[in-house]
Design a protein around this nucleic acid. Sequence first.
RNA 1: CGGGGUGUAGCGCAGUUUGGUAGCGCACAUGGUUUGGGACCAUGGAGUCGGGGGUUCGAAUCCCUCCACCCCGACCA
Length: 574
Amino acid sequence: MRMSKLYMPTLREVPSEAEIPSHKLLLRAGMMRKLVSGVYSYLPLGYKVLKKIEDIVREEMDKAGSQEVLMSAIQPAELWKQSGRWYDYGPEMFRLNDRHEREFCLGPTHEEIFTDLIKNELKSYKQLPLNIYQIQTKYRDEKRPRFGLMRCREFIMKDAYSFDRDEEGMKESYREMWEAYEKIFTRCGLKFRVVEGDSGAMGGSDSHEFMAMSEVGESEIAYCDDCDYGATDERAECIYDLKEQDNEELEKEKVHTPSVKTIEQLEDFFKLPADKFVKMLIYKVKDEIIGVLIPGDRELNEIKLCNLLEVPEHELILADEDIIKEVTGAEVGFAGPLGLKKDIRLLVDSRVTKMKNFIVGGNETDYHIKNVNYGRDFEGEVVNDLLLVQEGDKCPKCNSTLKIARGIEVGNIFQLGTKYSKSLNATYLDENGKEQYFLMGSYGVGVSRTMAAIIEQSHDENGIIWPLSVAPYHVVITIVNVKKDEQIELGEKLYKELSSKGIEVLLDDRKERPGVKFKDADLIGIPIRITVGRKANENIVEFVLRRDGEKIEVKADEVFEKIKEEFERQNLKL
RNA sequence: CGGGGUGUAGCGCAGUUUGGUAGCGCACAUGGUUUGGGACCAUGGAGUCGGGGGUUCGAAUCCCUCCACCCCGACCA
């Protein structure tokens, strides 16, 4: 491709809407433009990258035995009503009516549609397992689209669905997808971790998330360097040793604590560390009031609480002032398990039962009670673990120390079980002619998000640094001065030669000053640059790698070999 | 959806406090000089000042209202 003809509107200045590197660089490099909030148009360079990522996904899915199909983005409401998700999905779903007032939505995901597709024709156990996928546009009316391609309202996703006869088969399909995903993200050049996820709203049992490690990631994960354990913060099991506790239970005592409400204020007032306190959080779940007791130095994990109570997250509401007053008889900040005005369900994190002589709110404004002990002074439903992990907690697998990091969720895999086959009545006949529900799995890759994740992990102050596997072009030939015939001739010659050998080449034949060309080449992140300049008449050019910027002079007829070396270094065939 | 902020030429911004009819840099066009890391000079084109309503002789500026966009929180590929 000749750059004089390429539609590549690069920007010197960053549009003020962009905050993170991938968003800024995609705009500056002329790879995409915003249409409206959360919806982007892909320009030639950006679309090329997207297609490269798609092709990697496609190859690995095909190799794993999945078959590609293409479904519509527009879906009838009926199927969603059958699965119940028409109501559960909420305002995230783009809904629309046709001229006959029939209801539709723009698909946020395709479990219902895939299940419906196969259920009338996939009838025998002999046809199983089946795995089908598509690469297609998804729509989610996000509460807050942000960070460019990171959280969009329209995005490109690969979604796959497996259908198996039994649990064992489903697990096998799951494992195959796991392996395919590891290959996909490795080929995209991403540093990633596979972590346990919370299956929450998708239903089903086991799930894992593929996290591209990045500071700007929206998910927090806990992981272990000494083994392969990793989990999202919502899911991670929280294990830690309590500090040494008193041997004897002391007599409890009411203490006047005027206006001392928060844990920090209490630490200050009592001159004691946060782990000597127990805090009580009060929640409203439907019509029930629930008190949750956890150690003062820890945070509650609301997802774990939701899973325990078997309610969706939006039904768990932190109690307001009025409810707290009603339950405790005191202002906010003095809640405790002793002497509650109302009989409420009390959940107690197991760690609290092991603490001795701790301090709790007195259920009376400006009072706390010290030397409180579980069992002697109060009782409740003991729950093993309701806490949010912290850096330094113990690894549940190997007892080593956990670390916390941020990640971009670029893929996930779910074991769905029979959730959708049951609600949509999708069955096959087994050897005995008996109807059985399919065991399903669903597997997503955020294709457009992966593009952003690659940039987040691979850029510098000058622009993007694409790995060869997804770069829009492998090589850019920069002609320093287009008024010099020998430079043009050599550039053109190399352009033809390399192109004919299967290398994707950009020829910078623009009538621009060299500085502009170098800046653009760096910005758009072409992995290899061949500079044709001063020594063109000696048949010598410069070979530069975008990732380290080191320049070496090579003879023009050795360029191909040098390029080949770099392909090999990046584990690519040429 | 709650909290905060912004909206003036394609992009980045000034002008708004104190009303007087719109400006700077980049980009774009033309001519010239330049040519190894975003050149310089000259000339030029480009604006419903987010929309609507109001106050006023007069509104980018004051008031009301609607909208869009961005950031922080709860959700997800």
